[in-house]
Amino acid sequence: QGDIVVALYPYDGIHPDDLSFKKGEKMKVLEEHGEWWKAKSLLTKKEGFIPSNYVAKLN
C-alpha cells in the first residue's frame, strides 16, 4: 500500500509523463525511484512522476 504525500510546493511537469500538482495537493505514492516517484493525485486521479523533494509523507 502506497504512502500518502502532500505537496510542499507547486510543480509544473516538464516531461509528458510528469504529474503536475499544486501546493497542498495530496497524492498516493505508487513507486519510489530515487529522486522521482510515480504517484497518483487524489484530486485529479492522474498518474505521473513527481520530484520527491517537493512532497512530504503524511503519517
Rank of each mutant, 00 (worst) to 15 (best):
residue 1 Q to M: 12
residue 1 Q to A: 13
residue 1 Q to C: 15
residue 2 G to E: 10
residue 3 D to P: 10
residue 3 D to N: 13
residue 5 V to G: 02
residue 6 V to W: 06
residue 6 V to I: 14
residue 6 V to F: 09
residue 7 A to V: 02
residue 7 A to R: 00
residue 8 L to G: 02
residue 8 L to Y: 04
residue 8 L to Q: 05
residue 9 Y to G: 05
residue 9 Y to V: 07
residue 9 Y to R: 14
residue 9 Y to C: 14
residue 9 Y to Q: 10
residue 11 Y to S: 03
residue 12 D to W: 12
residue 12 D to R: 14
residue 14 I to A: 10
residue 15 H to V: 05
residue 15 H to M: 08
residue 15 H to I: 05
residue 17 D to S: 12
residue 17 D to V: 06
residue 18 D to E: 15
residue 18 D to Y: 13
residue 18 D to Q: 15
residue 19 L to K: 01
residue 20 S to C: 08
residue 21 F to S: 01
residue 21 F to I: 03
residue 21 F to L: 01
residue 21 F to K: 01
residue 23 K to P: 06
residue 24 G to S: 04
residue 25 E to F: 02
residue 25 E to P: 00
residue 26 K to C: 14
residue 26 K to L: 15
residue 26 K to Y: 15
residue 27 M to E: 00
residue 29 V to G: 00
residue 29 V to F: 04
residue 29 V to Y: 03
residue 29 V to S: 01
residue 31 E to L: 08
residue 31 E to S: 12
residue 33 H to Y: 12
residue 33 H to A: 09
residue 34 G to P: 05
residue 35 E to I: 13
residue 35 E to L: 14
residue 35 E to T: 12
residue 35 E to R: 12
residue 36 W to P: 04
residue 36 W to V: 10
residue 36 W to A: 05
residue 36 W to K: 11
residue 36 W to C: 09
residue 37 W to Y: 15
residue 37 W to F: 15
residue 38 K to A: 05
residue 39 A to M: 05
residue 39 A to L: 06
residue 40 K to H: 08
residue 40 K to Y: 12
residue 40 K to R: 14
residue 40 K to T: 08
residue 41 S to L: 04
residue 42 L to T: 05
residue 42 L to K: 03
residue 43 L to C: 12
residue 43 L to Q: 09
residue 44 T to Q: 04
residue 44 T to C: 03
residue 46 K to V: 06
residue 46 K to S: 07
residue 46 K to Y: 06
residue 46 K to C: 11
residue 46 K to H: 08
residue 47 E to S: 11
residue 47 E to G: 04
residue 48 G to M: 00
residue 48 G to K: 01
residue 48 G to Q: 01
residue 50 I to V: 08
residue 51 P to I: 03
residue 51 P to V: 02
residue 52 S to I: 09
residue 52 S to G: 07
residue 52 S to D: 04
residue 53 N to P: 05
residue 55 V to Y: 03
residue 56 A to M: 15
residue 58 L to R: 05
residue 58 L to A: 08
residue 59 N to T: 12
